[in-house]
Each structure stands twice: as C-alpha cells, then as structure tokens.
Simulated scan of single mutants.
Amino acid sequence: MSRRRIGFWYRLAAVLLKPPLLVFFKRDWRGMEHIPEKDGFITVVNHNSAVDPLSYAHFQYNTGRVPRFLAKVSLFKSGFVGTAMRGTGQIPVFRESKDAIGAFRAAVEAINKGECVAFYPEGTLTREPGMWPMKGKTGAARVALETRAPVIPVAQWGANLAVPPYPKRGEIKLFPRKTLIVKAGPPIDLSEFYGKEPTAAVLREVTDRIMDEITALLSEIRGEPAPTERYDHRATEQRPQDGVPPQQQAEPAQQAGRAQHDTAPPGGAGGENA
C-alpha cells in the first residue's frame, strides 16, 4: 500500500499524535524490512502499556503500511469516535456472530482487500509479573488459517517503562525520556496447518507458536531469557488462594513486575528514527 492511500483521517491522527511521541520518547525501530510492501497481512503484537498501540502504529505508519486495529462494533456507531474509527479504517468485530470466524469476517475481508490487520493476541494488557507476553487467544490463529496471509510477529518494549500496565498515582514517569523499541520479525511459517480442520487443538497450537515468536523477539530486545512457562491470567485469577479475592491476588504480582522493570533492559538503547 502506498502512502497516498493512507487517507485523510489516518494522516490527521499522525499529525496530532506524532509530535508528543517525538517529544516524550526516543525511538528504536527494527525489522521494518519484514513488513510486506503489498497484499494483505496480519501483525501480532504484545501489549504492555496503554501507550504501546501508539508506538506500534507510529512504527508501522513509517513503513507506509498502516495497521487496522480490531474494535467492538459499537464504537463505530455514533459521534466523533465513530467517525474517526470509520475514517481511519479500523475493523469492527461482530461479537454477536454465531460462528467463530464470522466474528472476524470484517478482518478477513480487509486482509483479502490488501490491508494489514493488527491483533493483540493476549486480548488485554499483560498481567505477567515480568511483563512478558501471556497466553494468547485464538482469534489471530483463526483469521490466519482462513486467509493464509503472512503473519508478522511484532514485539515492543519501552512504553511500559513510562506508563506501566494499570498505573497508580506516581507510577507514570515520562522523564527521563524512555526509548520505544519496536521490532518486527519475519513471517511465521504456518504452512503445516493449512488445510487442517481448525479444531481447538489446532488453533491452540497455532496460537502458541505465534506467542512463542513474539516472546522470542521480546527476549532479544530485552537481552534476557523469557520464562519457560506461559502465564495464563485467566487460570490464575480463577484459582482462589486462602480465601483472597482474585483481583487482590493479582495486584502484588503486578506491583512486583513494575518494580522489577523500572529501568530499561540490557540492549535497550538504539538508533532513533522519526
């Protein structure tokens, strides 16, 4: 997709959002050569800060292939938000669909039309104590097997050092400036799954492979090994401990993760690209 097809609304968003990002953050973009120059594709991205969708979008905007994010269909129906969502080409998810792939039919259609659709497979901000990717949901796997489009893993780090997940008062630290590191990897080889019935077991295997690739990229960025077991926040929060409510159990782990990673990881510095 050429830059002239990005459109007015996406360009307006860039005009409004890029200046503060340039003021408050340094940038280290890696792996732009892995973003396809044409045809539809999928990106799968880790999520560790409310700010990281902006850093990822900035990274990919600079490649000329803008991402289309998934959002619930109600956001598209009214007001300025709806106008902006439609204008920037974001993808409505029809959760009322009776079949699983039907819930993502707009994403499939967008990919078939040559667009990039971005998935956050974790489905939420990470709750993993060390801010590693958690167990993923299977939506990206479903769409990948349906379209057979390239799946590009993307890992990012740095936004969480300024704005951690679920921050409390005093935990947002914009200065000194943090470096937003975004790294794209080569397409994930899923060819062995093409033609197979998308059973729960197949979708889980594809999803685990996707999360493994994202985690490996993040490990390279951080310069340290990832945990050997994938954190599953749904299972953890559903498992009571000595009568303590799940939401209270999760909070100490989140606080520990924020304290552990309050400084940049080894190898965090890098080249800066506007």
Rank of each mutant, 00 (worst) to 15 (best):
A118C: 12
E109P: 10
G123A: 13
A107M: 05
K98H: 11
P133E: 01
C116M: 07
T126F: 02
E109I: 08
E122G: 08
E115F: 13
C116T: 04
E109A: 13
E128A: 14
P133Y: 01
L125H: 04
G123R: 12
G114S: 00
L125D: 01
R105S: 14
A110N: 03
S97C: 12
T124W: 15
G123Y: 14
V108G: 01
E122V: 00
D99N: 12
I111C: 03
A107D: 03
E115L: 10
I101W: 08
L125G: 04
F104H: 06
F119M: 10
T126H: 02
R127A: 12
S97V: 04
A118W: 00
R127I: 06
A103G: 11
R105C: 09
K113T: 09
K113Y: 10
E122K: 04
K98P: 11
T126D: 00
P129R: 03
I101P: 11
L125I: 06
A103H: 09
V108K: 02
P121Y: 01
F104M: 14
G130N: 15
A103K: 11
T124D: 14
V117A: 07
M131N: 12
P121G: 04
V108H: 01
G123T: 11
L125V: 08
R127P: 07
A110G: 06
V117Y: 04
T126I: 03
A110T: 08
P121W: 03
M131S: 14
F119E: 05
F104D: 05
A107R: 02
I101Y: 12
C116W: 00
S97P: 08
A110Q: 06
P129W: 05
I101V: 15
S97F: 10
E115I: 09
F104S: 10
D99R: 13
T126S: 09
